[in-house]
Design a protein around this nucleic acid. Structure first.
Lengths: 342, 342
DNA sequence: TATCCATATGTAAGGGCTTACATGAAAATG
DNA sequence: CATTTTCATGTAAGCCCTTACATATGGATA
């Protein structure tokens, strides 16, 4: 492999035309007679020629590639988003350069630099953990946006050349919390594992709903789980621990289905009847919701729609159109067996 | 954006050196004095210069990029694999160009062509569904291997420049089936959703174990689920349907955790006691296994190890070393609540 | 001091493609 | 038939790097 590969020159020679003509055929450019076109195509077929994307990229200064950044491509939710993006982008003639950065800021910066040096035409930041509460920490996004359009999924950041598409996590969480309260639950624990932008929105939704219902919230009712995102046992253990430390709660509203599932496990282990004595609401409406027993009530934030919209916006930006810098979609509570029917 | 960007010439001018020297600094090449190195680095920092990967690629004829092909990046197992690959590759200085192809042969072919034209240095086919039972269908892989090394995860195919790393699915399935039989279950249903290479191995493992135990297997005991991979309800419904059509079974061994989980749901709905009256074994030991209630006994095929080994092999191949064309790792049965302790 | 090396830097030739511009031939126009 | 247009094709410059080779500089060696 990697011997001297077939180039446009070989084709031009074999077809008896100039390289310019070959290039025109390759690019479906105007003004090539049918006869020569056929000759060229035959030569291409004979030699098994594939254009060198570097050279092409050098000339065109675009590789028709979008960089996708996600903290962890194996996270259920992010993986789904990546899948949708990949699908949409391909349909629009773009490819995806994937970088999994992990959750550290430093690595995110490095990944973005890398994508830019690879001359991606745009960058999609998948997941709200790319935007930090501290403004200074978001400088790296603004920098990137000086070179290529940056798209944010489920996060918001103002800046030139930055576009945001997100779900209305605040409202979704507010309403879900209200639902729980209306069903008679007042000792509601908020269980979360991310300090991200959308994480903050969710938390505020919870807090406001409680406040508006006149329920006081102590800080201990907001439980942060530090472990890995798949560690259901660890999550359940944390609930167990704080329960035995004296905190009373008969409902959990979680920032994520995995957390919710751990709450179900916890409640079952305690012998609580779900949903009468103990209710749980998850977030993302992932496959976990239907895998759980009993099945999880969960907030669906319309990921596919978000991804489609985001991709469409990006395509608009790339073709020079004026596009909305911020799009928000409402979520929907999907009621299953962990909450009472209303 | 996309104005005239900073090039190596700008740096050379600003630093008062030749472009060759700049290039040397960029590539950490030999023989650059500390003084000039510093000058160059400063100029780079000042201008915010990022090297153009196209030009670099043209020169080096490699972009240090590996193409990763997966049918569906949102599949739990594949997503994990992609994550591991991405991690390992980055650690080795390579990036990942991800293509989700779907399950159709035509799209797989197209995706590979695309990767090759983008001059990836190697291709990783994630998941056994890339190798077909019909040899002719695998021609596209052989073609690709003429240009770049092709790595197969959990599949096997002989050919020049093709390397396979897989788990011993046959043996794992054989042993798991034997375990079930030893525990007293003989009406074992095999539940699967993929006709892939490793799917065939698993099936053979099941069949042989049954045969060796002197148990006759009717074709109806091998249930193929056609729906999407996440449709737990559909899966459970299929089990329900065949049970009510008269087929008796008190154990399910599944080719995938999702299928296994549906079996658990089915058994619970029937009121069977798990594992005494009804046992279930899943495959992949994914997070679903611990999310399930009761938790799933599942076969762990050491995905991370497989991915590490595969990446290491690829790196070896790329640096010209002689590498094993086939590596097989044994799996391990992780016993949880859906089977009896032995 | 003359000679040779090692080290540091520069020059220039690609690498494979796109495309503006130039050219030539055929078709349309008067 | 001369002249202008149009279409098809070729020429060559440029995209931004890498790197073999050439050159210059200073010190070590005999």
């Amino acid at each position: 492999m990697k011997e001297h590969s077939v180039t446009i020159y070989d084709i031009s020679e074999q077809a008896g035309v100039s390289i310019a003509t070959v290039s025109r055929v390759l690019n479906n450019s105007s003004n090539v007679s049918e006869a020569t076109k056929k000759k060229v195509l035959n030569a291409i077929k004979d030699t098994g020629y594939t254009p060198n994307a570097f050279a092409r990229g050098l000339g065109l200064n675009t590789m028709k590639t979008i960089g996708i950044l996600a903290a962890d491509s194996s996270d259920l939710y992010l993986a789904k988003a990546i899948y949708y993006f990949e699908e949409e982008l391909r349909a629009s003639g773009y490819d995806s350069l994937l970088c999994c950065t992990g959750y550290a800021l430093k690595d995110k910066k490095a990944a973005i630099d890398l994508l830019i040096s690879k001359k991606v035409d745009g960058i999609i930041l998948v997941g709200s953990n790319f935007v930090y509460p501290d403004v200074a920490d978001n400088k790296y996004i603004l920098n990137a946006a000086e070179k290529v359009p940056v798209m944010l999924l489920n996060a918001e950041l103002e800046g030139n050349n930055i576009y945001c598409v997100s779900s209305d996590d605040y409202k979704s969480m507010y309403k879900a919390t209200c639902d729980l309260i209306e069903s008679g639950f007042t000792n509601i624990l908020y269980f979360y594992n991310s300090l991200s932008y959308s994480g903050a929105l969710k938390e505020r939704g919870y807090r406001d709903a409680m406040k508006d219902a006149g329920i006081n919230v102590t800080e201990r009712q907001l439980q942060f789980f530090e472990g890995t995102r798949e560690d259901v046992h660890g999550m359940a253990a944390q609930l167990e621990k704080i329960a035995s430390s004296g905190l009373k709660f008969n409902a959990v509203i979680a920032a994520d289905d995995t957390l919710a599932l751990s709450a179900v496990k916890y409640a079952l282990s305690k012998g609580y009847k779900i949903p009468e004595e103990f209710s749980v609401i998850g977030y993302n409406n992932s496959m976990l919701a239907t895998c759980s027993e009993p099945e999880l009530t969960s907030i669906d934030n319309k990921l596919e729609t978000l991804c489609q919209k985001l991709t469409a916006t990006l395509m608009g930006v790339l073709s020079g159109e004026e596009m909305p810098k911020k799009t928000v979609f409402g979520g929907e509570l999907v009621t299953r067996a962990t909450t009472k029917e209303k």
